[in-house]
Design a protein around this nucleic acid. Structure first.
Lengths: 213, 213, 213, 213
DNA sequence: TTTTAACCGAGACGGTACGTCACGTCTTGTG
DNA sequence: CACAAGACGTGACGTACCGTCTCGGTTAAAA
């Protein structure tokens, strides 16, 4: 009797239930938001019992995190490659890359997925565990993207070093979260230009003469 | 019959109840946090009825906002002057002023009031109305402080213009909110130094050779 | 200053308010019944304040009793005479008089006033005070009617004495109240015939061979 | 899959909770009466939750009816026999039987159970459903008793037929309800004699020469 | 094979908080 | 004083979710 055999006498968990429950969670999340999401509603929509939900997740925040991660994983695996399915296009200039990146993010928020992202972000502040999960789920993506943009700029000669990249990677999301969660001002092109020209480029050490667009 | 006489037939609302309820709200908020705060508990502590609470506020978030604003108003009116009761000391250098400002903020968060601030901030993201109220309640303070620091620096010759002040006023709080609400990293001196040296000073156009402290 | 002048310093009670409140009470009673009648609703409909209502009546049951009595008094005083405005017709036979009386009562219950009567009767069982008021308000009418019917029968030679009249006066209303309040069977002609033939006439000592109608 | 197997998915209702809740209802009913009985009090006394109560009964009147019926059922099943545990003694005369029956009823009203009976009767007039339930719960008993008394009388030769029994069965309870619910006169021996001699016996066709007692 | 132990759906359970309603009292300003 | 308006403390209402717990009935690995 080896270690692997120790666990599980009894009926094994039906992994398909996980998927159904996570799907239902995303549905409900999109329909009513994080705060009004109830486990009962999720279970009903998944044709699962509350017990099955609670057997797998200790509570709402964890369930929502997992649902979010599952959604992310699914959208990333639409193709077989490890590269993101929405490639970050090389626009030819540092500023163009940054603006394109921001616009891409806005576009994402308008999609079905975006509603969920907002719902989850909204709940982050209340739930440290959810926040941690979200961070670990997204930080790598953010870092990759920012580094790539910086490297391209260095190759082009627009930047002399990647020194400011980490700070920039830190400030850019902070600005976006604030705009989305705490401000009622629109997340529009004017804001993007402002963030790119007045914050991102200066922090990256790009003393632009070409100025704004 | 003038306009002033028009208002109010019937028994006027007892403003003292407002105060009692808001006080109770702050108490409960400090004791159990936003999520576990219940209207029943507030009413009981204020020796008021739930009906009285609901007659004045439509729900928990609005009540908490008002409680927060009342606390702010009260602490600001401790003296009769218009100047803040915690003066922003002139440390002699721009960098010193900024660090001192940040540390002052941290110190505030450790106070009784700080628990409330955190509780309210935590709830902001969920409640647009609360967020709006918080913004309007705090933005002026923030702007004043940042301008004052910048003006001192200009007087000293450390800055050539106040051009970056607005952006700086925007970024600094964003960084702090992120650290407080979405990060699990400590809000310590290392972070302050990082924000001041790598973000604030560059954005203000202070191309410091004097570097760190 | 004479004795009459002693009482009442200050503004005298506006007797018109009584009428308005009682009218409103009858309205509300007819609309929603006794149990759902609220003092607030009455006051609102009378454009009176709750204080005015409570200054005059200690509570709902007393108010409803008074409203009922006022309605009765008003309908009785439609003409100046002391005789009832709905005369009890002499049908020529004892049985005919009894059936006509019962039918008259049913007809009354279908009127606007009837709804109120039912509402008040419904409330009687719960409220001893209301029951007492109702009794004293209606018993005399009942006794008068029953005696009149019996006397006519004696004049016609249908009855030899009025001996059974008091008992009959007691049983008839009891049967009706039971049918109305505690039974779900209809208050129809079949019931009337049953009561008259099987109960009223035997108790009055009318050993009829002429039987049914 | 037979019919018995069809019933019930999910956890079955715990019948013991029914009993506990009904017991608690009877307790509270006895303590404070129908009008002051609250669902909260019942639930607390039954160590149940309000939700459990509302899951089984739609509201107070239905709960009270069921509690009453449960009490009746329980007291009837104290012995295994189908005969009532309080036998109706044969006093030797029709009049004696009737008087004894009425006195037995009065005695019952003075017991603990009597308080409940009164409480429920009081509520009947307001609640048609309750009234219907009470009727079906008590009518059979009444009919049985009245028939038995009549049959004894026929055997003794006191009555020539059972013709008047149904009417009598109808009138007797009506008189009692009126006395209990709508009158303030006492339910005493004088009343019993009156009902028996002036109403019951005549309606049964017992033209007594022995007259009253 | 036969256990046997965990799974599954459904839904009851004790709680807690919700937001509303009506009560009877009170507190204003205006006759 | 009375009066209209309406705020007040009280307390019950019926609902909604919480997270846990039975049920009867699978489902696979272990015996």
């Amino acid at each position: 009797m080896n270690l692997a055999a120790v666990r599980s006498a009894g009926r094994p968990r039906d992994e398909a239930r996980d998927a159904a429950i996570l799907d239902a969670t995303l549905d409900v999340l999109g329909e009513v938001g994080y705060d009004r999401l109830t486990i009962d509603a999720v279970a009903a929509k998944a044709k699962a019992s509350k017990a099955t939900v609670y057997r797998r997740w200790p509570g709402k925040p964890q369930l929502v995190v997992d649902a979010f991660l599952a959604m992310k994983a699914r959208s990333h695996s639409d193709d077989g490659s490890g590269t993101p399915q929405v490639p970050w296009p090389d626009t030819g200039t540092l500023r163009g890359d940054l603006v394109a990146g921001c616009r891409n993010f806005i576009a994402k928020l308008d999609s079905d997925e975006g509603k969920l992202i907002l719902a989850v972000m909204t709940a982050q502040a209340r739930d440290p565990e959810l926040a941690a999960a979200m961070r670990s789920a997204t930080s790598e993506d953010k870092r990759k993207y920012c580094r790539m943009v910086a490297e391209r700029a260095i190759e082009r000669g627009e930047l002399s070093s990647a020194a400011g990249v980490d700070t920039f990677t830190e400030v850019l999301p902070a600005m976006m979260f604030n705009r989305l969660l705490l401000s009622d001002e629109p997340f529009d092109d004017a804001f993007i230009n402002h963030v790119v020209d007045d914050i991102a480029l200066p922090l990256l050490g790009h003393h632009a003469k070409a100025g704004a667009g």
